[in-house]
Amino acid sequence: MTAHSPEDIRKETRVYIFVFIALAALTVVTVGISYLDLSTGPAVALALFVALIKGSLVAAFFMHLLSERKLIYAVLVFTVFFFLALIFLPLGSFLNQVAG
């Protein structure tokens, strides 16, 4: 563990509280959006966008990815790439079916 002065750590805990408030607020926002009765496209895009922000907040601060080692980033970059392949390649194949 890298040496942090108690002062630094106290500062971090204040950040955690702010992140918590942001997460709570965004939860309310995303629920609010869902009552707007948007059409599917924008609704999905908005909901995913908000979820992405929330997820990034959790990962960046709670999982302290912001100050993580390069090696972890490398592992995660690979994982994200394969995750995207897993989501989009099957989807592509489904949308590109031969009729009949």
Binding site: F82, A85, L89, G92, S93, N96, Q97, V98, G100
Partner: peptide, 17 residues
């Protein structure tokens, strides 16, 4: 990780994929 569907050419996969 990105070659797997060559096992599935006969599942009606379109030409693009």
């Amino acid at each position: 990780f990105i070659v797997w569907a060559h096992h599935m050419f006969l599942t009606g996969m379109g030409t693009v994929m």
